[in-house]
Amino acid sequence: MDKEHLSESLSIWVRTFNIDVPNTDLTDGVLMSHVLHQIAPAFFSETWMSKIKTDVESNWRLKVSNLKKILKGILEYYAEVLGQQITDFHMPDVNAIGERADEKELGRLLQLILGCAVNCEEKQEYIQRIMGMEESVQHVVMNAIQELMQKETP
């Protein structure tokens, strides 16, 4: 899959959550944490969110720290709530995202968040929202979901 298109299209998808945060940069993990909270508020709770630092500015260490918590939370959600393990999937390099806003790695992390959205209790709402998006974006989203489905093992 074209990983640069992946990041671009999934960034568009993430914006459909209409989350009002001061900094819309995806690489600090703040917006992602809000998206995850919207997807699964019981799991990505207020307590979990309180561990995400919001005032990271350009401090890459804090960004990476946030992104590590995001990735860990996502993998725990897959295992504990969805009963799935993601095997043989090239896990996102959160250092590369935090340090240099690596588009390909960002795409992989957003892909995992997409997997949470289309498998969660409210998945109907999220899938229908995707179906209302531009066709080129839908294709990328479909490919991203298909790739994840191949990597899921119960």
Partner: peptide, 29 residues
């Protein structure tokens, strides 16, 4: 042939996302 290709593409997307809606998952089942 453009409209036919578009319709086919839309069909693929609709089929995929509809099957996803009906897929049982750990959370939704």
């Amino acid at each position: 042939d453009g409209p036919k290709a578009n319709a086919a593409s839309e069909g693929v997307l609709a089929n995929f996302f509809n099957s996803l809606l009906n897929k049982k998952t750990g959370a939704a089942s």
